[in-house]
Amino acid sequence: MTDIDTQFAQAHEDVQQLPERPGNLTLLRLYALYKQATRGDVHGDKPGFTDIVGKYKYDAWAALKGTAQDVAKQQYVELVESLKSGTAA
């Protein structure tokens, strides 16, 4: 496992132990970065208008299209670290 993979795995554990739940936009960003880091570019059909949450998740992930998986991992780690230190909302 590379260094970024180790940091990413640790950040994924750390995010579940945060003392406060992040806001919805931050949660969407975490979701999108995680999906981009683990699955690559978005795939599948976009959810319909009746699935509001699914639509927002899909759109957040789609916004990262073309982002390298290692870059997404690094951004995920940085976001989790900022949440742990209290510098992100």
Rank of each mutant, 00 (worst) to 15 (best):
T2I: 03
D3W: 06
I4L: 00
I4A: 01
I4C: 03
D5Y: 09
D5Q: 14
D5L: 14
T6D: 07
Q7K: 13
A9S: 09
A11H: 02
E13W: 10
D14M: 08
D14E: 12
V15G: 10
Q16F: 13
Q16N: 12
Q16T: 14
Q16C: 09
Q17K: 15
L18F: 06
L18I: 09
P19G: 08
P19N: 09
E20N: 04
R21D: 14
P22R: 08
G23T: 03
N24P: 11
N24T: 14
N24F: 12
N24V: 13
L25W: 02
L25V: 13
L27Q: 11
L28I: 10
R29V: 12
Y31P: 13
L33C: 12
Y34V: 12
K35Y: 09
K35S: 10
Q36R: 02
A37T: 04
T38M: 10
T38Q: 11
T38N: 10
V42Y: 04
H43D: 12
G44Q: 00
G44T: 05
D45I: 05
D45T: 07
D45C: 08
F49K: 08
F49G: 11
T50F: 09
T50W: 00
T50E: 08
T50L: 09
I52G: 13
I52H: 10
V53F: 07
V53S: 12
K55N: 05
Y56V: 10
K57I: 01
Y58E: 06
Y58H: 11
W61C: 06
W61I: 15
A63Q: 00
A63P: 02
K65S: 13
D70E: 13
D70R: 10
V71D: 07
V71W: 01
V71K: 03
A72P: 01
A72G: 04
K73I: 01
K73W: 01
Q74C: 09
Q75T: 05
Y76C: 01
V77Y: 04
E78Q: 08
L79D: 15
L79R: 15
V80H: 02
E81V: 14
E81S: 13
S82T: 13
S82P: 15
S82M: 15
L83T: 02
L83V: 07
L83F: 01
G86E: 12
T87G: 14
T87P: 15
A88S: 07
A89C: 07
A89K: 02
